[in-house]
Nucleic acid binder design. Structure first.
Lengths: 202, 202
DNA sequence: TGTCTTGTTGAACCGTGATTCAAATAGGTA
DNA sequence: TACCTATTTGAATCACGGTTCAACAAGACA
């Protein structure tokens, strides 16, 4: 028998197992047994904690998004210079490669969002948070006279997030000539135009 | 009994039925019976034409992409002025709303591309064709002295396609403040920066 | 220690979707 | 007209995934 755990611990395990299972089998195509196996439990145990599987899936998506966002924040937290901060933020929004689990899950979500309002809302919320994040960097840089913004900060921020998203999809789909490095360069190229800064990585 | 049809005709019907069924139930979640019902046939008849359902799904995705691309080409075919052509092309790459069937299918495909190489290749091919399309417009405009390109044409073209894609996802996910009109404006805002043209719609 | 609560199992059950195939039938052809 | 072939049906079968639940086991606690 699998080790007995507290309700809270087990739920965390299950959320993680669901995340992994969805990445392997798709957000819609995933089965209860696959999640159970991923968690090292039987299907009955999963149902005991989540009588409605959809709740688990939503929580798993939510957790995946949260994790993705937190990681980004963490990566740029120590950087003071707005230009370096912008460069690092752009990099942190892209998958590390076609197998990147976090971004794979987000892409799954994108496909399902058209049919599922909850998923749509989750994605929309993430988008808006990322836009705010960029906007803060842009306005800080502008206030310090480092950036000369060619468009209003919300437009630039939205464009940056949109570009990350789209190149993320390209990388996940294994585009032959767009990998993480090329994507960073493409986005930076726009960012230079929009900020008037040369944005050279240190 | 459903009307008897030739092999070729029936396959076309089935491809169309599969497209509609996938939009309703997801690229992965779709069932044989749903496709059969959509086509007004029984499951046996579907299997008669497509013993392996995956082949039908791939053909349906392919047809959906082809249709999307052809529609775009058609919409801009009569326009000579590069600026107007660019504006119209941008508009034609976005969904008409959250229910837009063509784009919904492409979004489905994006989610599945991480797990399915064939789907990844389909999407990548479409991306590249769209990039070429924009590149031609940009270079024609530059050659005529109408556009003053701030980046090389491939970079601009890739950025434009990426923005279309990303805002397409936002619209499908029902972002509260980004609809087709706002998306066009956001993309045009970048296009102005990149082409040095004011790009006013006639 | 014994009891109580709670998490977990495993088997049984049910519904559903895929698959098979003999029979029926529509259309073409001689 | 009668025959032939390709298409479609509908029922039977199979496999599998979700759901239920009685029994069991692991801690918690007195």
């Amino acid at each position: 028998m699998a080790q007995r755990k507290s309700r809270a611990d087990r739920r965390m395990d299950l959320i993680d197992a669901a995340r992994r299972a969805m990445i392997q089998h798709g957000a819609e195509g995933v089965h209860l047994n696959q999640i159970a196996e991923e968690a090292g439990l039987t299907s009955g145990a999963v149902l005991y904690h989540y009588p409605d599987l959809r709740d688990l899936l939503i929580e798993a998506h939510h957790a995946g998004m949260e994790r993705f966002y937190e990681q980004r924040i963490k990566k740029v937290s120590g950087i003071a210079d707005p230009a370096q901060k912008l460069i690092t933020t752009i990099r942190s929004g892209l998958p590390e490669g076609p197998e990147d689990a976090g971004v794979r899950l987000l892409c799954e979500l994108g496909g399902a969002a058209g049919r599922n309002r909850v998923y749509g809302t989750l994605l929309t919320t993430l988008f808006d948070r990322q836009v705010s994040m960029y906007q803060t960097i842009l306005e800080t840089g502008a206030a310090q006279g480092i950036f000369t913004l060619a468009q209003n900060s919300e437009t630039i921020a939205r464009t940056l997030v949109a570009l990350e998203d789209a190149y993320g999809y390209r990388i996940i789909a294994r585009h032959h000539s767009i990998g993480p490095d090329q994507a960073v360069e493409l986005i930076l190229d726009y960012a230079r135009l929009a900020t008037g800064h040369e944005l050279r990585p240190e």
